[in-house]
């Protein structure tokens, strides 16, 4: 199968993720969108690795998964902390750093 299709699919997934991060206010949904973007990148890595016949891209994909897992752990902990103090998961409420 042509690698172009995978890349197009990855681009579509990435764009959906990016739009999701930008437009959604719920922290959980934003996190899901970020995961979508990461996985779009993973898809591209794996597709190129398959096309080139090497494992490099596949190895990177595993690293991304590990990083994503760690990021989710920390991110969810922060979201929990914010939820406990503010009784909401809306990201717009956490704007105390505004100048």
């Amino acid at each position: 199968m042509d690698v172009t299709n995978y890349v197009i699919l990855a681009a579509i997934l990435f764009s959906i993720g990016a739009v999701g991060v930008l437009v959604r206010r719920n922290a959980i949904v934003m996190f899901m969108s970020i995961e979508l973007m990461l996985n779009a990148a993973n898809l591209a890595f794996v597709a190129f690795a398959q096309a080139n016949g090497t494992f490099d891209g596949q190895v990177v994909a595993f690293f991304v998964m590990v990083v994503a897992a760690a990021e989710v752990v920390i991110g969810l902990a922060i979201i929990m902390a914010i939820f406990r103090t503010r009784k909401t998961a809306s990201i717009d409420e956490a704007n105390l750093l505004r100048a």
Partner: peptide, 9 residues
């Protein structure tokens, strides 16, 4: 510097 995460994103 709006303080809205999505702006920074």
């Amino acid at each position: 510097q709006t303080g809205y995460t999505r702006n920074y994103a």
